[in-house]
Design a protein around this nucleic acid. Structure first.
Length: 201
DNA sequence: TATTCTTGATGGACGCTCCC
DNA sequence: GGGAGCGTCCATCAAGAATA
């Protein structure tokens, strides 16, 4: 297992969304905000830090720690290393079977912590952009075209489902392909039942 | 051993910018 | 104006770890 440097460790058990680590604990140095942020009050810095959701901060901190460890084993500075180092890291991930969308998250995370190169974010670097394009071309994402559930099982369950509400909810879920949260948000309140001209929507 | 929790990978939605 | 591409974000799932 990879050793996490103290300044870039992933969150410990129990460090959940509402108590995401403050900027310093995930290695968020002034470098991340740029020179103009050096004299900003702590509250302002914290508000800027809150621009990203806690889950994203956790994710980025985790990816960054992986990259930091990878760099440290090669004697490189993760926050200011050359673009070739980053590309080598990405290539290694690809060789390990990671998908282009996973690489995309790594690049976003590295871009969040790494110093800009030629005044350009890592995510906008021409070589990185082309590398990701190439990886997508070689490994296109494969959407699931076949349902992972057994239709006969669903029909059996539907037959035995007594309350009409549950049957309706199940059928609605199947035909609308909505997530649980979307279905839960459906409401019969008047404010949610406004129709357009000619009942168009 | 069963259940719950955590972690990491992934796909896709959304908003924004750029270009035609 | 609209499509393409990008960065950000979130939901979901599988696998492994922790706990009852």
């Amino acid at each position: 297992p990879l050793a996490d440097p103290p300044e870039a460790r992933p969150p410990l058990l129990g460090e959940r969304d509402h108590m995401a680590p403050p900027a310093q604990s995930v290695g968020l140095t002034p470098l991340v905000f740029g020179r103009e942020s050096e004299n900003l009050p702590e509250g302002v810095l914290n508000m800027i830090f809150q621009a990203r959701a806690p889950s994203t901060r956790r994710l980025y901190a985790l990816k960054w720690s992986v990259f930091s460890t990878w760099c440290s084993t090669r004697g490189k500075n993760p926050a200011s290393c050359d673009i070739s180092v980053i590309l080598s890291f990405l290539q290694e991930l690809l060789d390990k079977g990671r998908s282009p969308s996973t690489l995309k998250v790594y690049v976003a995370a590295i871009a969040a912590f790494h110093a800009p190169i030629a005044d350009q974010s890592i995510g906008r670097n021409n070589l990185v952009v082309r590398f990701l394009k190439g990886s997508r071309r070689i490994n296109p994402s494969r959407p699931h075209t076949i349902p992972t559930w057994d239709l006969s099982t669903v029909l059996r369950a539907l037959k035995n489902l007594k309350p009409l509400t549950l049957k309706t909810a199940l059928l609605l879920a199947l035909v609308s392909v909505k997530r649980i949260g979307d279905l839960q948000a459906l409401s019969l309140s008047p404010s949610c039942l406004e129709f357009g001209p000619g009942d168009s929507k």
